[in-house]
C-alpha cells in the first residue's frame, strides 16, 4: 500500500494529508493552483499531474485545502457541488488502480469498514444508507440484508467511497474572514463562472407540478447532483408538460456535471422515442416519490383542484 505524500496527494481529505500540511503557508502559487483545480472541476476535467518532488506534492495538497477555503468564502452551491463531484470522481479513478489495502484505508476515513461473511463482502446498514446513491440498483429492497449487514461487491464499495467523498466535500465550513488572497481569488473565479439560465428555472418554479417534480427542481436549483433515473423521469415529464429541448437543456445546466452535448442528445432521444412518463409506482421504486397524491401518474397532478393540491403539499390530505 502506498503511504506518505503519494497517498496524501491522491486523497487530500485524509488525516495524513492534513498532517502533511502542517507548517505550510498559504501563498500566491498555491491559490493559483486552487483556482485551476476549481476551473477544472467546472469542466469536469479529471486529469491529474504526476508529481515527483515532495515540495510539489505538498503544494498540490495545499491547493485542495485552499480550494475549500475559497468555496467556504463564496458559498456558491454550483461551484461547491461541481468541485465535490469532480474530486470524488478523481478519487474513484485512483481507487480503481489501488490495491485492496489502500482502498480499505481510504474507505476507513469515512467509517466504511467492510467485513466478510460466507466469502461475500458486507458493510453495516447505517453506513450503507448514508453512502449509497439513489439508484434503483442500490435500493435496500434489491439487496441481501442480514442482521444489519448489507452484501456489497468490491466495485460497489469503491462507489460508496466516491459518494462519501462527494458528501464530505459538499459540506464546506463557512469561512467568514479569509485572507485577502482567498477573497480576490474568489472574486476572479465568480467572474468566470458560466451564467446559469435563471430565467428558465424561474418559469418552471412558478409552474405547478407534483411534489416529486418540485423536489427535483428544488435540488437542481441548489446544484445538487441527480441520479440518472431522476434525470430521465424529469426530462420525460417536462417534455410532456410542453417544454422544448432548449429549455430543458438550460434547466439541466444547473447540474454540477452538466455537459451540453450529452444532455441535448439524451433529451432528444427521450423525445424521439416518446418515453412514457413514469407512473407513481415507478417513481416510488426510484425512491423519488415524496408525497401521497393518490393520482397514479405525476401527470394527473394537473387534474386535481387547488384545494386538493394544497392539502397534498402541506401533508394534510
Amino acid at each position: 500500500m502506498e503511504e506518505g505524500l503519494g497517498f496524501a496527494v491522491k486523497y487530500p481529505f485524509s488525516a495524513s494529508a492534513k498532517a502533511a500540511l502542517s507548517g505550510t503557508e498559504l501563498n500566491e502559487r498555491i491559490v493559483d493552483m486552487a483556482i485551476e483545480r476549481l476551473k477544472k472541476a467546472l469542466k469536469g476535467d479529471k486529469s491529474v499531474k504526476m508529481l515527483l518532488h515532495d515540495s510539489d506534492r505538498k503544494e498540490e495538497i495545499a491547493s485542495y485545502a485552499a480550494a475549500r477555503m475559497i468555496l467556504g468564502h463564496l458559498r456558491n452551491n454550483f461551484l461547491t457541488n461541481s468541485f465535490a463531484v469532480n474530486e470524488s470522481k478523481k478519487v474513484h479513478d485512483h481507487l480503481d488502480k489501488e490495491d485492496v489495502k489502500t482502498v480499505d484505508a481510504v474507505a476507513a476515513e469515512f467509517g466504511i469498514v467492510s467485513g466478510s461473511a460466507g466469502g461475500k463482502m458486507d458493510i453495516d446498514l447505517p453506513t450503507y444508507l448514508k453512502f449509497s446513491t439513489r439508484n434503483p440498483h442500490y435500493r435496500l429492497i434489491n439487496r441481501r440484508l442480514i442482521c444489519g449487514r448489507v452484501e456489497i461487491t468490491y466495485d460497489e464499495k469503491k462507489r460508496l467511497v466516491e459518494e462519501a467523498v462527494r458528501k464530505h466535500i459538499e459540506i464546506i465550513p463557512l469561512v467568514k474572514d479569509p485572507p485577502d488572497i482567498i477573497k480576490s481569488a474568489g472574486k476572479k473565479l465568480v467572474e468566470e463562472l458560466p451564467k446559469t439560465e435563471s430565467r428558465i428555472i424561474a418559469n418552471v418554479k412558478e409552474g405547478d407540478h407534483p411534489p416529486c417534480v418540485m423536489r427535483l427542481l428544488e435540488e437542481m436549483k441548489k446544484h445538487q447532483n441527480l441520479p440518472h433515473q431522476a434525470r430521465v423521469f424529469l426530462s420525460s415529464y417536462l417534455i410532456a408538460a410542453g417544454m422544448n429541448d432548449d429549455e430543458i437543456t438550460g434547466l439541466f445546466s444547473m447540474l454540477p456535471d452538466f455537459s451540453e452535448k450529452v444532455t441535448r442528445y439524451q433529451v432528444g432521444h427521450i423525445r424521439r422515442k416518446e418515453y412514457n412518463v413514469a407512473s407513481c409506482a415507478t417513481v416510488m421504486t426510484y425512491g423519488l416519490c415524496c408525497a401521497v397524491c393518490k393520482i397514479g401518474s405525476p401527470l394527473n397532478w394537473h387534474s386535481l383542484d387547488d384545494y386538493r393540491k394544497k392539502a397534498i403539499r402541506e401533508g394534510t390530505a
Binding site: 447505517p126 444508507l129 448514508k130 439513489r134 435500493r139 435496500l140 429492497i141 440484508l145 416510488m284 425512491g287
Partner: peptide, 9 residues
C-alpha cells in the same frame, strides 16, 4: 431520506 429508505424497505 435514509429513514425513508428504511420505511420503503
Amino acid at each position: 431520506d435514509e429513514r425513508r429508505e428504511l420505511v420503503d424497505y
